[in-house]
Amino acid sequence: MKVVKNIIIRLSFLVLLWAGLNYIYGNTLWYNDIDQHADTLENLWPEEDSSDIIYFGESSNFYQEHPDTPKVRISNYLDRMLPLRVGTVDNAGLVASNYLHIMQHIPQKSKVKAVVVTMNLRSFGPTWMYDQNSNYLKMADEMIAQGPKLLNRFFIALKTYDYIAPEELDEIRITAWKKPLEFPFALPYSNLYEWNAGLGNGGILREDGSWDMDKIPVACHFVKNYAFTIDLQQNPRIRDFNEIVAYAQQRGWKLYLHLLSENYEEAEKLVGASLVNIMEYNADLLIERYNHPEQNVWVVNNFKTVPNSDFRDRTFPTEHYNNRGKRRCAKKLAEVINH
């Protein structure tokens, strides 16, 4: 019994020591680690006390192709259009779980009344979900998770987040690509994998009947990014958005899910109407799933708001719009929020 008592006393001292170290860490190195591993949180700090609405976004919010273009974000336009102060929290490649972890840091005493959360259709698909950046994003979540800061830091070194080795990610992605595409309409291929291969081996038919081989890579990217079925029970993004909804309701915030514009015109031109049907079907699915104004949750449907001419990228399907496109998105957001 004496040994057990001895051990318990030492372990108690150890816990006290650890608490002290946690305090020291939280006031010193933690800021450096946030800067290194979860720098999006730094965007929140200047906004959390002064904003009425916080806009959470990824590169669709800020992307600038031309350096001479005025750097105006969708959230900046929104701020101009609304009588309320709209703060911005964004970073390239962020996904729903990142938004959730950051919004959990908004102080209870903050005057935030509403949050706008970017909902990117592509982010529900396996190509984005299992890309090589996913580990980094999960690590960022772990770093800012609720709990003692020193423990979070220890956990990222232990890789307690769902770390998936790069080779395994490739395998998971390809397996997901081979899953059947289940839609209530006919498709030219039974799964993404075959579709991508078929397109890659064929080509893009021009209006004059010739084949445009140069466009094959971008057409394949369109297929890889949009040809997927959203399983409402299993899809990790659905789970994350469910948690965002629950958290916003718990905090008493109005939640606006900003369904981004996708370049459906280009998709139709490069791949065909089948792919646009899938995109529309999935967009409708998300709207139906989340748009519940009676519960203070709105899906702002910008899916077809931005025309092809206002999309920046031509080599990859992105949601990078020029300023006109961004303004169009903000306008629709402002209408819903004002309503």
Binding site: L17, W18, G20, L21, I24, Y25, L29, D33, H37, N135, M139, L150, L151, R153, F154, I156, A157, L158, K159, Y163, A165
Partner: peptide
């Protein structure tokens, strides 16, 4: 204290 802090706060994060 040094070892605990070094391990928990300064451990490498790559896999």
């Amino acid at each position: 204290a040094i070892l605990l802090f070094g391990t928990m706060a300064l451990g490498g994060v790559t896999n």
